[in-house]
């Protein structure tokens, strides 16, 4: 397929075409974090398309990485965390794949990843970070190197630049040129957008340039290769101020991911052929319920129980 130029006037496309910008074996930066604003429509499309050997990088994540591992789409995990916190605990597909040696574990640290992205942004061959020495995380990364500061003699770890092949980001609004509006917490989304070779964006809604500009441009158009309108594109993670995370659905994934059979059934039920089917399977009422969080603190609390 033809890769869209970053200066194209119109970067709108369909989800299959956008996910086509991710190749087998790519280093992939997934936006959002934990249970917040992860680009799940793109994750699902990568699974539909049977992507393999992805090398995922980033900070603390959850169902996005666990589902990709469950679909055998990932070869290397270089995240600072993959799991479901106190909520549901360990990530079942990740834990199983790690125990079988089915994924390479290159666990990293939030600040290390950030500094590696910055090295790429700054155009530097390395950046020094403190810490890591004494941690076994060092032994998972032969690409790191201990150096001595030429001015102070301090021991530091030099880490190489990280320029992911592709960043996947879910935002709130975008115009046809690829100007994207996102709201805090941005996690690493801006850094991913600036450091990556390709940037693929889904948004809750496409809008006019005036509307995106008024809301505030978080990621400027010249960094972006493709934009796709994907309502509920972060589901079952949250996408405020529109909807909270779908705790019940995440619980359903946790239960399904206890075994290979459950994972197969989950994907059969929810994935094929497209996002319309996915939303139908979740159900209009269930989705609408997630939008009621702002009725009152009590309501919000109820949705989290």
């Amino acid at each position: 397929m033809t890769v869209r130029r970053r200066t194209a006037d119109d970067k709108r496309c369909g989800l299959p075409e956008a996910a086509g910008l991710v190749a087998d074996g790519d280093v992939v930066a997934i936006g959002g974090g934990l249970s917040h604003r992860e680009p799940m429509a793109l994750v699902r499309e990568l699974i539909r398309q049977g992507r393999r050997d992805l090398h995922v990088v980033g900070s603390a994540h959850g169902i996005d990485v666990d589902q990709l591992i469950g679909a055998e789409a990932i070869g290397v995990v270089e995240q600072s965390y993959v799991g479901f916190e106190q909520d549901f605990g360990l990530a079942p597909a990740y834990r199983r794949a790690a125990g079988q040696g089915a994924v390479q574990l290159r666990e990293s640290c939030c600040y290390t990843i950030l500094q590696q992205l910055r090295a790429a942004e700054y155009g530097l061959p390395f950046i020094p970070v403190r810490g890591i020495i004494g941690s076994d995380v060092l032994h998972l990364h032969p690409e790191y190197s201990e150096i001595t500061c030429p001015f102070t003699g301090q021991r530091l770890i030099a880490v190489p630049p990280l320029a992911p092949d592709v960043a996947l980001i879910h935002g709130l609004l975008a115009d046809q040129h690829g100007n994207v509006h996102v709201r805090r917490p941005l996690v690493l989304d801006e850094r991913f957008a600036f450091a990556s070779r390709r940037v693929v964006v889904t948004v809750e809604r496409l809008a006019s340039s005036q509307e995106v500009s008024a809301a505030g441009v978080t990621i400027p158009y010249f960094l972006v290769d493709a934009v796709v309108e994907a309502p509920y594109g972060a589901h079952p993670t949250s996408c405020y101020p529109h909807y909270t995370y779908d705790r019940e659905h995440i619980a359903a994934w946790i239960a399904a991911a206890a075994g290979d059979e459950g994972i197969r059934e989950y994907f059969e039920t929810y994935l094929a052929p497209d996002e319309c089917h996915y939303r139908d399977q979740i159900g209009e009422a269930a989705l609408a319920r997630l939008r009621t969080f702002d009725e009152s603190p009590e309501r919000w609390q109820e949705l989290m129980a």
Binding site: A60, Y81, A98, G101, C109
Partner: peptide, 16 residues
């Protein structure tokens, strides 16, 4: 390390 009995979530920002 190559095949952990239990893969825990990971350290987040702790090792820096």
């Amino acid at each position: 390390r190559d095949r952990p009995k239990v893969k825990l979530g990971g350290g987040g920002g702790g090792c820096n």
